[in-house]
Design a protein around this nucleic acid. Structure first.
Ligand SMILES: [Mn+2]
Ligand SMILES: [Mn+2]
Ligand SMILES: [Zn+2]
Ligand SMILES: [Zn+2]
Lengths: 121, 121
DNA sequence: ATAGTAATAATAATCATTACTAATTAAAAA
DNA sequence: TTTTTAATTAGTAATGATTATTATTACTAT
């Protein structure tokens, strides 16, 4: 993968926030410095960065979000403000139980807890 | 919600399979008996049935799937054959831990384990 | 039977994402 | 340093899933 200015800025944007941004939000950000980038470029580079394991892709319903944090972790999704919060759930137990009980080779555990964050009490 | 023949058949189709069918698959099935149904009718009725709690909506990446089993349960997704298998994971522990640790009012826990099912050993 | 309104088929619109293409550009080869 | 190359780009068209619109049809209560 050869260097590209666009990809470097996209990477920096993803690494600059904890908000698990969407491609569209990143597009809005990169246009501030490079007004001529196209949305296709954003999608293409996010895909490349995710394929290389530099960033992580997380699916939030029908839209893809991106995360600089590639360590295994789970998420809380607030259905009031839409925010996604990182959480750590001990899922090795789940994984092991399922592999044994269902004879299934688990490669990834995706846990999202949906509810209301503490801003809306 | 008043009775409709289309909705009744859609409900029966969802209840007839364990495959967590998509709207499009259901559309193909209902056309066998009612060739003139429109895809919009399928979507509208699936939404109504899910809103009424008669069936359950599960998000599989960018596509919606439907499940006659409304009891709280989780899924295994095989990334070889695409099949979704019902599993029971004791998630009350997770829920309670997260509610306390993160001060988050959890209404739903979504767990999907991705991997390879025992048909591809 | 009539009126009121929920549901329908057909179709257009939307939204997120991917595909295509001619022009540009980083990096390798000469 | 100048070609040569192939990856990358901007711009745009196309796709796939879903939702919205609209004129028509069909239950249901009076
Ligand atoms: Mn995260
Ligand atoms: Mn299920
Ligand atoms: Zn919130
Ligand atoms: Zn399988």
């Amino acid at each position: 993968m050869r260097y590209s200015h666009q990809r470097e800025i996209i990477r920096e944007i993803v690494f600059s926030t904890n908000s698990h941004p969407t491609a569209d939000w990143i597009y809005g950000e990169i246009k501030k410095s490079l007004p001529n980038v196209s949305l296709g470029t954003v999608y293409r580079n996010l895909k490349q960065l995710a394929d290389e394991g530099i960033i992580r892709n997380i699916q939030d319903g029908p839209v893809a979000r991106y995360d600089w944090n590639i360590e295994p972790h789970d998420h809380l999704k607030c259905n009031v403000c839409g925010e996604m919060i990182d959480i750590q759930v001990p899922n090795e137990i789940i994984k092991d139980t399922v592999m044994e009980k269902y004879d299934f080779e688990v490669s990834d555990v995706e846990i999202t807890l949906v509810g209301k964050c503490n801003k809306h009490t």
